[in-house]
Simulated assay, not measured.
Amino acid sequence: MKKIKNLIRKISPAIIACFTLALSINANSSTCFFMYQPKVPAKLDKFKKIK
């Protein structure tokens, strides 16, 4: 059990960095789909380059 917790503690910063990178890429891109899209959450604005 201790090994799993230590592994999670070591890997979690890398996972958070990957998710933050994915959020910032998606926040600064547009979509080409012509389907229904819900409104963008306001918290996503902090990841945008252009405000």
Rank of each mutant, 00 (worst) to 15 (best):
M1F: 04
M1T: 06
M1A: 09
M1L: 05
K2R: 09
K2Q: 09
K2S: 07
K2L: 10
K2F: 06
K3H: 02
I4H: 05
I4R: 07
K5M: 06
K5E: 07
K5D: 08
K5F: 09
K5Y: 07
N6G: 11
N6F: 11
N6R: 13
L7V: 00
L7H: 00
L7D: 01
L7A: 05
I8M: 07
I8E: 07
R9D: 12
R9N: 13
K10T: 04
K10C: 01
K10S: 06
K10E: 06
I11V: 12
I11K: 13
S12F: 12
S12Y: 10
S12P: 06
S12R: 12
P13N: 09
P13I: 04
P13K: 06
A14L: 15
A14G: 15
A14C: 14
A14W: 14
A14R: 15
I15Y: 06
I16V: 14
I16M: 13
I16F: 08
A17M: 07
C18Y: 12
C18A: 15
C18I: 11
C18N: 07
F19T: 05
F19A: 14
F19K: 07
F19P: 03
F19H: 08
F19L: 11
F19W: 07
T20F: 14
T20G: 12
T20C: 13
T20Y: 10
T20D: 14
L21W: 05
L21S: 04
A22T: 01
A22F: 03
A22P: 00
L23I: 04
L23R: 06
L23Y: 08
L23K: 08
S24L: 02
S24F: 02
S24H: 03
I25F: 12
I25L: 12
N26V: 00
N26T: 05
N26G: 10
N26Y: 07
N26A: 07
N26L: 11
A27M: 02
A27E: 01
A27T: 01
N28K: 04
N28F: 01
N28C: 03
N28E: 06
N28R: 05
S29L: 11
S29R: 13
S29K: 11
S29M: 12
S30E: 08
T31P: 01
T31A: 05
T31W: 08
T31N: 14
C32N: 15
F33S: 07
F33N: 04
F33G: 01
F34V: 12
F34A: 15
F34R: 13
F34S: 15
M35D: 08
M35A: 11
M35V: 13
Q37E: 04
Q37D: 03
Q37C: 00
Q37L: 02
P38W: 03
P38A: 03
P38L: 02
P38D: 06
P38I: 01
K39H: 08
K39N: 03
V40C: 08
V40H: 11
V40Y: 11
P41R: 02
P41D: 03
P41L: 01
P41K: 02
A42S: 10
A42R: 09
K43E: 11
K43M: 11
L44A: 05
L44N: 06
D45Q: 13
D45C: 09
D45F: 14
D45G: 12
D45T: 15
K46G: 05
K46P: 01
K46I: 09
F47A: 01
F47V: 01
